[in-house]
Amino acid sequence: MKSSNKVLIIGASRGLGFALAQEWLSRNWNVVATVRSGNTPLHRIKQAFPGQIRVEQMDVTESSDIEALADRLPVHEFDVLYVNAGIALGPEDRADEVTTEDFSRLMVTNALSPIRIIERLYDKVKEQGTIAVMSSSLGSVTLNESGGWEVYRASKAALNMLMRSFAVRHASASQSLALVDPGWVRTDMGGADATLSIDESIPGIVDQIAASSGKAGLHYYNYRGETLPW
C-alpha cells in the first residue's frame, strides 16, 4: 500500500538530492522532485516506482522557474519540503583568491536561491509539516577551527542566517524548520576522501526529519540528530 505522505525535493538530479528521493521512495512516500534539465537518474527510476514520483524541471537560480513551479502546486500539499541546492569550489578555496563571479555564483546558489524557494513554497507544506534545507557544519562559525572551504563556509553561514531571519518573520508558523548537516559524504561534490557513504548519511537525514515533525521553530542539526552550534 502506498503512503499518503508526500515530499517535495528541490535539486534531486544527482548526489544527495537523488539519494534523498530514493530513500523516501523506498519508504513508500510520494515524491515530487526537481531537476535543472536533461535526462537524469531520477527520470530513469520512475519505472521502478509507477505513480509514486513526479519530476519537475526548475533552475533554482531562476525566479521565473520558482514562480512557475509554485503556480503548479496546490497549498498544504506536502509533509516535507527539502531544499538541496548547493555547489562548491573545493577545500582550498580562499576568499582573497576567488573571482567575484565565482563568489557571487556560490552565494546565489547556496544562500539566496534556497531562501527564495522556501519563501515562495512554504505555504505548500502542511501546517504540521517540515521545511528543511541542506546546510553544513561548515556553516557554523563556532566550529570553524580548521579553515579551508572558505567561500563554501561563507555561503552556508549566510544560508543559516537567512533561514534564521525567515524563522523570525514566520514565528507564528506551525511547521518545523530545519538546517541539516549531512556530514562529509562521498559524492561528486564531497569527493572520494569524504568520511561517509551515502548509505551512512541519507537514512539518518530522513529519520531526523521524521523526528522533527510537529516541532515548530528552527533547528540546526546533523544526520545523527546532534544539535550544531551557530
Rank of each mutant, 00 (worst) to 15 (best):
V125S: 03
I131M: 04
T142Y: 04
S140V: 07
A154H: 00
A95G: 10
E97G: 14
D123F: 07
R153C: 08
S137C: 11
R116P: 05
K124F: 01
S136H: 04
S165A: 13
S113T: 09
V133Q: 02
A111L: 11
V98W: 03
S165G: 12
Y122T: 12
Q128V: 14
E119F: 01
T99Q: 05
Y122N: 13
E150N: 11
V125Q: 05
P114D: 09
I117V: 14
N160D: 13
W149Q: 07
I118S: 02
K126L: 12
M163S: 08
L162Q: 12
A132Q: 03
V108Q: 09
K126Q: 14
S137G: 14
A95M: 15
Y152P: 10
I118F: 03
L112W: 06
R153L: 07
M107N: 11
S113R: 04
R116M: 15
A132P: 03
Q128S: 15
A158K: 00
L143M: 13
M161H: 11
F103C: 07
E127M: 12
V141A: 10
G148W: 10
E101H: 13
L162I: 02
M163W: 01
K156T: 13
I115A: 06
A95N: 06
E127S: 15
R164A: 15
M163A: 14
S155K: 05
S165P: 01
T99M: 04
R94G: 14
I131K: 05
V151E: 06
K126C: 08
V151H: 07
Y122D: 13
G129P: 09
A95C: 12
R164S: 15
L162E: 04
E145H: 11
T130D: 02
D96Q: 11
F103R: 05
